[in-house]
Computed example of a mutant assay.
Amino acid sequence: MLPATAAALAVLAALLAWPVPALLARARWPRRDPLVALVCWQAIGLAGGLSIIGALLVHGLAPWGHSLPEAAWSVLTGHPAEAPVRGDHWVALTLAGVLATELVGVLLLSWVRTTRTRRRHRELLELVVQPAELPDARLLEHPAPVAFCIPGARPLLVLSSGMVAELDDAQLAAVVAHERAHLREHHHLYLLPFVAWEAALPVLPAAARAHVAVRTLVEMRADDVALASLPGPAPRRTLAQAIVVAAGGAGGAGVPSGALAVTGSAVGARVVRLIEPPSPLPAWARAAALLSAGLLLLVPTALLLLPAAL
């Protein structure tokens, strides 16, 4: 029989693999506070991984102790098992090792591939871009209205000549502020775990759903940060107009792989959100969401460290 702790972790992993991501993806409140929603998504991903791997480890190591630290120490120091070791214990340990290796390996591989792709695109672009009038921006001769940034140790913010020609000064400043928000808050790091999750578990619908949701929230967060730095009487309308022009001219065409663009995701929803802004999330709701995210991380951690009920 499964230890109660392993069963609890398995149930939590099942909840975080499908119903919880599905509910959060359909919820309306994340658009009211994208940053809090991003924290919740990160907690779901991390807690889900801890839960499924932890459930397998707790069950597999159950014969060696009544808690994961105790059992792991017994195995490392060569102490004999306190109970018979059955085939299902070895199967659970093997699956835990395989799953942990896959998740961590795919995460590292995604990071290496993305970093390499961004470096290659940056090196190619640096050969053809010119200094733009706006600080920290580079101008690319391209007829379509395109704006994107390539994050990394040497970030690059690129505006096409078509974008400069299509937008007025206020709209162009809004686009640049959006891209700078991506770079300043390192939004590519929010996306990386979900790129890896989708690559590691392509048959899991929640993985693709989470990736799409996080991409949308990252763009909404960049919109919010940009708005805070924009002057003028109607910064929301200015940014919305700039997004519409960029989306209508080229969409995502001309944006290198691994870059973050102003037309990156959910253009229609973002424009509606800018023109008709939702009411801010109340302080108590923000606190409740952050507390829930913290509990999601605390529960599997506690279950892994506290003595197991056998």
Rank of each mutant, 00 (worst) to 15 (best):
Val98Pro: 04
Val98Thr: 11
Val98Gln: 04
Val98Gly: 07
Val98Leu: 05
Leu99Lys: 00
Leu99Asn: 09
Ala100Pro: 08
Ala100Val: 01
Leu103Gln: 15
Leu103Lys: 12
Val104Pro: 10
Gly105Gln: 06
Gly105Ile: 00
Val106His: 01
Val106Asp: 00
Leu108Tyr: 02
Leu108Ala: 14
Leu108Thr: 05
Leu109Arg: 14
Ser110His: 02
Ser110Phe: 04
Val112Ile: 15
Arg113Thr: 06
Arg113Trp: 05
Arg113Val: 10
Arg113Glu: 00
Thr114Tyr: 11
Thr115Asp: 05
Thr115Leu: 02
Thr115Pro: 04
Arg116Gly: 07
Arg116Thr: 12
Arg116Cys: 11
Thr117Cys: 14
Arg118Glu: 03
Arg120Pro: 10
Arg120Glu: 04
Arg120Met: 03
His121Gly: 03
His121Arg: 09
Arg122Thr: 07
Arg122Val: 02
Leu124Gln: 11
Leu124Ile: 12
Glu126Trp: 01
Glu126Val: 10
Glu126Ala: 05
Glu126Thr: 15
Leu127Gln: 13
Leu127Phe: 13
Val128Tyr: 04
Val129His: 06
Gln130Leu: 10
Gln130Thr: 06
Pro131Glu: 03
Pro131His: 09
Ala132Ile: 05
Ala132Tyr: 07
Glu133Tyr: 05
Glu133Phe: 12
Leu134His: 15
Pro135Ser: 05
Pro135Lys: 00
Pro135Trp: 03
Asp136Lys: 14
Ala137Arg: 08
Ala137Lys: 05
Ala137Phe: 09
Ala137Gln: 13
Arg138Gly: 04
Leu139Met: 13
Leu140Gly: 03
Leu140Asn: 02
Leu140Tyr: 02
Glu141Lys: 06
Glu141Ala: 15
His142Leu: 12
His142Gln: 15
His142Thr: 15
Pro143Leu: 01
Pro145Met: 03
Pro145Phe: 11
Pro145Lys: 06
Val146His: 06
Val146Asp: 02
Ala147Pro: 00
Ala147Arg: 06
Phe148Gln: 06
Cys149Thr: 04
Cys149Tyr: 11
Ile150Trp: 10
Pro151Ser: 04
Gly152Ala: 13
Arg154Lys: 09
Arg154Gly: 01
Pro155Asn: 03
Pro155Arg: 12
Leu156Tyr: 06
Leu156Lys: 07
Leu156Gly: 05
Leu157Cys: 07
Leu157Thr: 14
Leu157Asp: 14
Leu157Tyr: 14
Leu159Ile: 08
Ser160Arg: 09
Ser160Ile: 15
Ser160Pro: 15
Ser161Phe: 03
Ser161Ala: 03
Ser161His: 08
Gly162Lys: 10
Gly162Leu: 00
Gly162Val: 00
Met163Gln: 04
Met163Tyr: 08
Met163Val: 10
Met163Ser: 09
Val164Gly: 06
Ala165Val: 11
Glu166Thr: 12
Glu166Cys: 04
Leu167Gly: 02
Leu167Glu: 11
Asp168Lys: 08
Asp168His: 01
Asp168Gln: 03
Asp168Cys: 14
Asp168Ser: 01
Asp168Trp: 08
Asp169Lys: 09
Asp169Met: 02
Ala170Gly: 14
Ala170Trp: 03
Gln171Gly: 13
Ala173Lys: 15
Ala173Gly: 13
Ala173Pro: 07
Val175Ala: 13
Val175His: 03
Val176Trp: 12
Val176Gly: 02
Ala177Arg: 15
His178Val: 08
His178Arg: 05
Glu179Tyr: 14
Glu179Gly: 12
Arg180Pro: 04
Ala181Pro: 08
Ala181Arg: 11
Ala181Asp: 14
His182Trp: 11
His182Lys: 10
His182Ala: 11
